[in-house]
């Protein structure tokens, strides 16, 4: 564990708490993509189910439990509790375009060996799927052209999590000679998807302006 990864994990955790707070206080899931949230549940379940047979540390296990349960809870809030506030007509990104390529890639590029095939394929599937899981949300943002400030804080914390993993990998390469090409390449792509969002967040939201996309 190093400071970058720890801050990244905290940022990830914070983003989820912000999202839950936003939905509960506004009693609405307006501006939130159900499809992105569904993808995160798939990502967390396929990656963190190893919680049952792998023990790394208490921190690791608790975080995995948190991510699985909180993402499921968010899905419940969106799909059941505040379902009337859901507007499927703007959340139109097609999920098979993301899930199928991630599944095919995971069958080709993975760390499977004789001992572990399924768990390794599931792990790489979750990494590939996570790298693009934000796309339905960004697509929704693009369609509406604006976002509530709280939603942009959520997205910023989520993007910061992935961005912080980059110095973590550089640090691990320098200190442990540890390189995980699947995680690194996917992570770089995932972070790059936030570039546009980060730009508007820093130039507008931080200065107290509303998040609006240029026409």
């Amino acid at each position: 564990m190093n400071i970058f990864r720890f801050l990244g994990d905290l940022s990830h955790l914070t983003s989820i708490l912000i999202l839950i707070h936003k939905i509960q206080t506004s009693r609405s899931c307006r501006g939130i993509s159900y499809k992105t949230q569904l993808l995160y549940v798939i990502v967390f379940v396929s990656r963190y189910l190893d919680l049952v047979w792998t023990y790394v540390s208490l921190y690791n296990s608790l975080m995995k439990l948190f991510f699985i349960s909180s993402s499921s809870y968010i899905l419940y809030l969106i799909k059941i509790r505040f379902r009337p506030t859901l507007d499927p007509s703007i959340d139109t990104f097609s999920l098979p375009y993301l899930i199928i390529p991630a599944a095919i890639l995971s069958l080709i590029f993975n760390y499977a060996d004789e001992k572990a095939w399924l768990s390794e394929v599931l792990w790489s599937f979750s990494i590939y799927l996570e790298s693009v899981a934000i796309l339905p949300q960004l697509f929704l943002l693009q369609r509406t052209g604006e976002a509530e400030t709280i939603t942009t804080h959520y997205l910023f914390a989520l993007g910061a999590y992935r961005a912080l993993y980059i110095p973590n990998w550089i640090y691990r390469y320098a200190t442990e000679s540890f390189v995980d090409p699947i995680a690194i390449i996917s992570g770089l792509i995932q972070t790059a998807l936030y570039a546009d969002f980060f730009y508007i967040y820093f130039t507008k939201v931080i200065r107290g302006q509303k998040f609006e996309l240029p026409a």
Binding site: D50, V56, Y111, Y165, D180, A183
Partner: peptide
């Protein structure tokens, strides 16, 4: 060695 310690990241 790769498989042994990669799973510590979330």
């Amino acid at each position: 060695p790769h498989n042994e310690h990669k799973k510590d990241e979330l």
